[in-house]
């Protein structure tokens, strides 16, 4: 196993029991340096609890969290100095302006943060014109932006964001994705928890899926997508002859007039597409359309959670 210093953050064998309920069970994953890890899972899966333990808002029943090589439990102040976090809905001092809230938090940083730096961050999250307004006048989306601002204010090496796109309008969500991509390019390691799969799909390099407090999947985006079933849309000039070929290849398919919807078997979908094209060509069947439709993250996620649910019910 790789040393924890190889990763920006590592969670090892984390368990949490509250009021006799097992919230987390042996959760282990790592966040690579300069990568975005998506923490996926249905509501109540334990995503927020995991993030809370990662920033020491909660103590684990067992297990360890390491941030940039520092144990969060043993060396909290050193470990947390590397972290910017937004856990659940961001809350601020409503009686202060957005700028003053950030000023307070900047003064708690180990780094020197000037007023110009604060204004630059406000500008970056699209709150440049609202910095002097009291937070109690902010909309949900503006609070969310301020939440991101306070997390990136001290240029942390590790960002932990819990449902960061909640409440953002489409433009805000787009700005957020751009910001995250920029930060990743600058070497920041990011954990984003979300149940909005499309948000994760467009951002995350790696994925961890939590269900019932346990990791049910850990790997790259492509690997997860392979859990879903790909489909091939096929239209040929000789549909009846095509049926013979599909039966010969033992394919699962549905037919609507001249159009076939074929389930691509596990493995490389492009290799399958090539093999089918060759078979049709050899049988003298002209192909009008052959289009591979890869499973979306949502389909793959649902397939995975269904598998795990079936396993749990056995």
């Amino acid at each position: 196993m790789a040393d924890t210093t190889d990763y920006a953050a590592s969670v090892e064998h984390l368990s949490k029991k509250m009021h006799y309920v097992q919230i987390l069970k042996d959760v282990t994953f790592s966040v690579g340096k300069g990568r975005i890890l998506g923490l996926l899972g249905p509501n109540g899966a334990g995503k927020t609890t995991t993030l809370r333990i990662m920033v020491h808002l909660m103590r684990p029943t067992s297990g360890t969290v390491t941030i940039m090589g520092e144990d969060v439990e043993k060396n909290f102040t050193k470990a947390i100095a590397h972290v910017g976090a937004m856990i659940e809905a961001p809350e601020f001092y409503n009686y202060l302006t957005g700028f003053k809230n950030l000023r307070l938090l900047a003064d708690m940083s180990r780094k020197q943060i000037s007023n110009e730096d604060i204004n630059a961050v406000l500008n970056r999250v699209g709150l440049a014109n609202h910095g002097n307004a009291k937070v109690k006048t902010y909309s949900l989306g503006m609070r969310q932006r301020l939440g991101v601002a306070q997390a990136i204010l001290h240029k942390p090496e590790v960002l932990l964001l819990d449902e960061p796109i909640n409440g953002l309008d489409p433009a805000g969500a787009h700005d957020f994705r751009t910001l995250m991509s920029d930060l990743r390019d600058q070497g920041t390691s990011i954990v984003i928890s979300s149940h909005i799969l499309s948000d994760i799909q467009s951002l995350a390099d790696d994925l961890v899926v939590l269900q019932h407090g346990q990791v049910t999947y850990q790997g790259t985006m492509d690997e997860l997508i392979s859990h879903g079933t790909n489909h091939l849309t096929l239209i040929t000039a000789k549909p009846d002859d095509t049926v013979v070929i599909l039966q010969k290849l033992q394919m699962r398919y549905t037919r609507k007039a001249d159009t076939f919807d074929i389930e691509v078997p596990a493995g490389d979908p492009h290799a399958f597409q090539k093999q089918l094209a060759e078979e049709l060509f050899n049988a003298g069947i002209p192909v009008t359309t052959m289009q591979l439709k890869q499973a979306s993250l949502e389909e793959s996620f649902l397939a995975l959670t269904k598998e795990e649910g079936e396993k749990a019910n056995v």
């Binding site: 947390i80 856990i87 809350e91 306070q150």
Partner: peptide, 14 residues
């Protein structure tokens, strides 16, 4: 009560 404790306790102070 207002959950601002989260931003306070995730700073580099014990």
């Amino acid at each position: 009560a207002k959950n601002t404790i989260k931003i306070l306790l995730t700073r580099p102070y014990s």
